[in-house]
């Protein structure tokens, strides 16, 4: 199976990428294999939610506020105050909330998944599971990845709501905007596909965060230090991938879906 390994610059990186993709495909296939690990799934959802909800809420309020403040002063200068609400909603829902969600899913959820799987790997629990005829991908990785996706979806909704409320509060209360204009402009610029792309992004980010965390967790360098390094790497790799994917998705979306006001 392991044929003589070619060594040219970047070969290792290519190999790792290939394996990461292979794990992604394995997870996709194992998702539909019976029996589905319901209990593990629920436990993981609960766990990931519990480590991410509070930080997400705390991050999204100032995030919404910053966007509202920035846009508020900008729109005032160009005399388009009536669009403040719509612009901040667009910015929050399309960009800010999937990114905030991704950062927290990767930073809080993914690192926990990676550390958990990594310590199981070096304690040979994963090997033991394979030997007992149970696939760790189906048993452990699938529930975690699905949980990361689901929680990502929910968190994204939460960030949107909290962020918009924060924006409203800052715009109306702090900057003296009119509530009516803020709300009215909602429907002027924002449209339903904005929400869809936001949720699709969150789903995809949850998937990537879960897969990368699981991959690094299942293949750590030997020893406890290996697990620490793996967690570190998994967070960094996830961030890189997420921002890249976010860019690509945004570009595609802006091409495909026509803006409401042109």
């Amino acid at each position: 199976m392991s044929s003589p390994t070619p060594s040219f610059p970047g070969a290792a990186a290519l190999r790792e990428t290939g394996r990461l993709f292979a794990l992604g495909i394995d997870v996709g296939r194992a998702t539909f294999k019976r029996p589905f690990q319901v209990r593990e799934f629920i436990q993981q959802c609960w766990f990931i939610a519990s480590v991410t909800i509070l930080p997400t809420a705390l991050v999204s309020i100032p995030f919404g506020a910053v966007i509202a403040l920035q846009l508020g002063s900008l729109t005032k200068q160009i005399g388009a105050q009536s669009f403040t609400g719509a612009a901040s909603v667009l910015a929050i829902i399309q960009q800010a909330s999937p990114i905030v969600t991704a950062l927290l899913i990767a930073g809080a959820g993914g690192s926990a998944i990676c550390a958990d799987l990594g310590s199981r790997t070096i304690r040979e629990e994963i090997d033991a599971m394979r030997v007992l005829g149970v696939s760790p991908v189906q048993r452990l990785v699938v529930p975690r990845v699905l949980a990361a996706m689901l929680v990502g979806l929910l968190l994204n909704g939460m960030v949107s709501v909290v962020g918009v409320l924060g924006g409203y509060f800052f715009n109306v209360v702090m900057q003296g905007g009119t509530p009516g204009a803020y709300l009215a402009s909602f429907s002027a610029l924002a449209q339903l596909p904005d929400l869809w792309i936001s949720e699709i992004k969150a789903l995809l980010f949850g998937f990537i965060a879960g897969i990368v965390a699981a991959y690094r967790g299942l293949n750590p360098a030997p020893g406890p230090k290996g697990v620490g390094d793996a967690v570190n790497q998994s967070v960094v790799i996830t961030f890189l991938l997420l921002f890249l994917v976010n860019f690509v998705l945004t570009a595609i979306y802006l091409q495909v879906v026509p803006p409401k006001v042109s």
Partner: peptide
């Protein structure tokens, strides 16, 4: 060394393995 993954899982059911450190699920 050369069989498919599913075949491998099948054959592993013949085995009982005691690892050096026990490898219990923590």
């Amino acid at each position: 060394c050369r069989c498919s993954e599913s075949k491998l899982y099948e054959i592993r059911k013949l085995f009982g393995v005691l690892f050096q450190d026990g490898a219990l699920f923590g």
